Simulated scan of single mutants.
Amino acid sequence: MLSSVALRAHLLGARLAGTVATPREESLRRYRLFAARDPRVLIGIDPEGDWGQRELLGLMADRCGVSADPRRISGHDVIDPGRTLAALDAFAERLAAAVRCRAHVLLGTGHPHRLLGFYVALADALSAAGCTVLTPAQGRCVDITTRFGLRTHHLAYVRGVALVRAPGTERPGGEPGAHTHSPLPVRTALAAAAEAGGPLPGLVIGDHGWVCGAGQLGFEAIGLADTDDPAPFVGEAEGSVSVVVPLDDGVRSDYYRPLTRYVLNRACLSQ
Rank of each mutant, 00 (worst) to 15 (best):
6 A>S: 14
7 L>N: 07
10 H>L: 05
11 L>P: 03
18 G>C: 04
21 A>P: 01
24 R>I: 05
25 E>V: 13
26 E>H: 12
29 R>L: 11
39 P>W: 05
40 R>N: 12
40 R>I: 03
43 I>W: 01
57 L>E: 11
62 D>A: 15
62 D>E: 15
65 G>H: 03
67 S>I: 04
68 A>E: 13
70 P>C: 08
71 R>L: 12
90 A>S: 13
90 A>L: 08
96 A>K: 15
97 A>M: 08
99 V>T: 13
100 R>D: 14
106 L>G: 02
112 P>A: 01
114 R>V: 11
114 R>T: 09
115 L>W: 00
115 L>K: 02
136 P>Q: 08
140 R>K: 14
143 D>Q: 11
143 D>V: 11
148 F>C: 10
149 G>P: 09
149 G>A: 08
150 L>I: 13
154 H>F: 12
158 V>D: 06
167 P>M: 08
172 P>K: 07
176 P>T: 07
180 T>E: 07
180 T>N: 02
182 S>Y: 02
192 A>S: 14
196 A>F: 10
197 G>W: 10
204 V>N: 03
210 W>E: 10
211 V>K: 05
220 E>R: 14
220 E>N: 06
224 L>T: 04
228 D>W: 03
228 D>F: 01
233 F>C: 04
234 V>A: 06
243 V>A: 08
243 V>K: 05
245 V>N: 07
251 V>C: 12
251 V>N: 12
253 S>M: 10
253 S>T: 13
260 T>D: 07
263 V>E: 02
